[in-house]
């Protein structure tokens, strides 16, 4: 394993310190328990948004804390859900009297830890469960995973909360965005979790993992490596069959890299995916390309599509000022 690292035990802690110091104008780090919160809290009465999950997906979620998006993020150990005490402490630290909205990716660990926190929290709260991964059937025994669509939920609901939407409205909006969003990913390599020191799985030179989550785990199936057009077609079709965007429908197209895929390839994927939907008369009204929901050093990428309405476009365009997503502010 070749990584910039001192000890496995100090990596997360020191990295969080570096993140907070590099973005001291936007965020603050709380120690024991760990959470990242906005340097400047929102106005009284605002619904506060708290997300979190295992580390190793950076910039998700800490990179999305700031004006117009999250109020706090709870980073777990690498690929390990955070613990309830983190969510509780974060909620108490950022509470503005308008209630707490937890945004949770659908993984057993995340769900259960957030659930325990929600049960213990004495502030009114609600939870939006993100489950945008269409590589799994809708009827999957524990539901679909939450992947790169999460940031879209966080961005839009963040904008609504900033504009004064109440807890019920934020929760309903989050659910609606989640239902309008579908993602699917493909990996060319696994990734190396520092504590393990070797890649989680090996993949032949002519193989790819189709339908992967964001934890370096195996995907739904191992397929022969294909060219970019074929891969994008495969991904886009899975999403298309789920969301069935009609001609004239406005969408947000998000190409997400898993960490080790160069931008030149992500932009190629964007070009091909945009073509796919443009040929079907779909209007790509907004786009986002980059490494936002990563799996450490995994080579791979995912496509995410969100069906947009006027309100969602307005919320997407609203000012946001976080470490990783910034415009209009």
């Amino acid at each position: 394993m070749k990584k910039f690292i001192n000890t496995i035990d100090s990596l997360l802690e020191d990295s969080l310190k570096g993140f907070a110091k590099a973005h001291a104008d936007i965020v603050e780090l709380n120690q024991e328990p760990h959470f990242i919160k906005r340097a400047k809290l929102g106005s009284p009465g605002k619904v506060v948004l708290i997300s979190g999950g295992g580390s190793g997906h950076e910039p998700l979620h800490s990179g999305f804390v700031g004006l117009g998006m999250l109020d706090a993020a709870c980073p777990g150990q690498i690929f390990t859900s955070p613990t309830p005490d983190q969510m509780l402490a974060a909620a108490e630290a950022v509470d503005q009297g308008g209630g707490v909205l937890f945004i949770v990716k659908n993984y057993a660990g995340d769900v259960m830890n957030f659930e325990i926190a929600a049960e213990m929290l004495e502030i009114p709260n609600a939870t939006v469960l993100v489950n945008d991964d269409v590589s799994l059937p809708k009827t999957h025994s524990i539901g679909r995973r939450g992947v790169a669509g999460t940031l879209i939920v966080e961005k839009m609901v963040g904008a609504a909360a900033e504009a004064g939407a109440d807890l019920a409205a934020c929760k309903a909006l989050g659910d609606r965005i989640n239902q309008s969003t579908a993602s699917i990913g493909v990996a060319l390599t696994s990734c190396t979790v520092p504590a393990l020191g070797k890649p989680t799985f090996d993949l032949g030179d002519q193989e790819m993992e189709m339908g992967v989550g964001i934890h370096g785990e195996h995907g739904r199936e191992t397929l022969p490596l294909a060219n970019a057009s074929e891969i994008v077609e495969h991904l886009a079709r899975a999403i298309d069959e789920e969301l069935k965007p009609q001609p004239g429908q406005s969408v947000l197209l998000h190409v997400n890299g898993f960490g080790a895929t160069p931008l030149i390839e992500l932009h190629l994927i964007y070009h091909l995916a945009a073509q796919y939907w443009e040929q079907r008369g779909v209007v790509i009204a907004r786009s986002l390309v980059g490494n936002f929901t990563t799996s450490l050093d995994m080579a791979g990428a995912s496509l995410t599509l969100t069906l947009l309405d006027e309100e969602m476009i307005r919320l997407w365009d609203a000012p946001v000022n976080t470490a990783a997503l910034r415009w209009g502010a």
Partner: peptide, 15 residues
């Protein structure tokens, strides 16, 4: 266990 293990097993053993 609840506040140190994390993941699925942490919440379950904690519970």
């Amino acid at each position: 266990l609840m506040s140190t293990v994390g993941g699925a097993s942490g919440s379950l053993y904690g519970t």
